[in-house]
Amino acid sequence: MLPIGAFLTDLVIVTVVFTALVLGSFLWRPRIWLHDFPADIQAMVPPKTDEEKRLSLIFGVPFILAFFGLPTLLMWDLKSTLGADFSFLTAWLYAYALFIGINLWDLLVLDWGMIIFTDPQNPPIVGAEGAAGWQNYRFHFYGFLKGCVIGLVFATIIASLVTLLT
């Protein structure tokens, strides 16, 4: 059984790091996230420049490391806390619950929050004024559903790492 208090603390930690990376980079250079926007927005603006592609990679590497590394470290801590009660199933459920929690936060707060607070006539990406994609809740919901499936793989990889490497 997962200790709910520890899980919620870990979820807050991972969510804060995730939000800082995504929101910080988006507020600084929104076009580095261009690949995550609806097709109509992408079609209205020029493709990413070489510098934007490089910045996407620069931000992508720490993002991936934090996204996989931080939950793995937190799960190792959980493993030491639970001792003999720690199993692959426990690790998998923990990792999947973390992933779903972040995925839900991304949908409700970051994606749909952006929709609520973005003026389609004055969007954060110049050249995409008036695009219907700025109000496309369905696009982000489908992304959430895809994330739920990706989370199955994420949880399996992390649970395997933590339970097999002792």
Results as ranks from 00 to 15, higher is better:
residue 1 M to F: 11
residue 13 I to H: 07
residue 15 T to P: 03
residue 17 V to H: 07
residue 17 V to G: 05
residue 18 F to Q: 00
residue 19 T to F: 07
residue 20 A to L: 15
residue 20 A to K: 08
residue 22 V to C: 12
residue 24 G to S: 09
residue 25 S to C: 10
residue 28 W to A: 13
residue 29 R to K: 14
residue 29 R to S: 10
residue 31 R to F: 06
residue 33 W to C: 04
residue 34 L to A: 07
residue 35 H to I: 13
residue 35 H to Y: 13
residue 36 D to A: 15
residue 37 F to M: 11
residue 39 A to N: 13
residue 40 D to L: 11
residue 43 A to G: 11
residue 43 A to R: 14
residue 44 M to G: 05
residue 46 P to H: 05
residue 47 P to R: 12
residue 48 K to S: 08
residue 49 T to A: 03
residue 49 T to W: 03
residue 50 D to F: 15
residue 51 E to C: 14
residue 53 K to V: 03
residue 53 K to L: 10
residue 54 R to E: 03
residue 54 R to N: 12
residue 56 S to A: 15
residue 58 I to P: 03
residue 59 F to E: 01
residue 61 V to F: 12
residue 63 F to E: 01
residue 67 F to P: 01
residue 68 F to H: 02
residue 72 T to F: 11
residue 72 T to Q: 07
residue 73 L to Q: 09
residue 73 L to S: 08
residue 75 M to A: 09
residue 75 M to L: 12
residue 76 W to I: 11
residue 78 L to W: 05
residue 80 S to K: 15
residue 84 A to V: 15
residue 85 D to Q: 13
residue 88 F to L: 13
residue 89 L to E: 08
residue 92 W to P: 01
residue 94 Y to S: 04
residue 94 Y to M: 00
residue 94 Y to W: 10
residue 95 A to L: 06
residue 95 A to M: 01
residue 96 Y to R: 02
residue 98 L to C: 12
residue 98 L to W: 01
residue 99 F to N: 01
residue 100 I to A: 12
residue 100 I to E: 01
residue 104 L to Y: 05
residue 105 W to Y: 15
residue 108 L to R: 11
residue 108 L to I: 15
residue 112 W to V: 09
residue 119 D to E: 00
residue 121 Q to I: 11
residue 123 P to G: 03
residue 124 P to W: 05
residue 125 I to H: 02
residue 126 V to D: 05
residue 128 A to M: 03
residue 129 E to P: 07
residue 130 G to Q: 04
residue 131 A to I: 09
residue 131 A to N: 00
residue 132 A to C: 08
residue 132 A to P: 06
residue 132 A to K: 14
residue 133 G to E: 00
residue 133 G to M: 06
residue 134 W to C: 02
residue 135 Q to K: 11
residue 136 N to M: 07
residue 138 R to E: 00
residue 139 F to M: 04
residue 140 H to C: 00
residue 143 G to C: 03
residue 145 L to Q: 08
residue 146 K to W: 12
residue 146 K to R: 08
residue 148 C to F: 02
residue 148 C to A: 09
residue 150 I to S: 14
residue 150 I to Q: 10
residue 153 V to D: 00
residue 153 V to Q: 05
residue 154 F to T: 02
residue 155 A to F: 07
residue 156 T to R: 04
residue 157 I to A: 08
residue 160 S to D: 03
residue 161 L to N: 06
residue 161 L to C: 08
residue 161 L to E: 01
residue 162 V to R: 00
residue 163 T to Q: 04
residue 163 T to L: 06
residue 165 L to I: 14
residue 166 T to M: 09
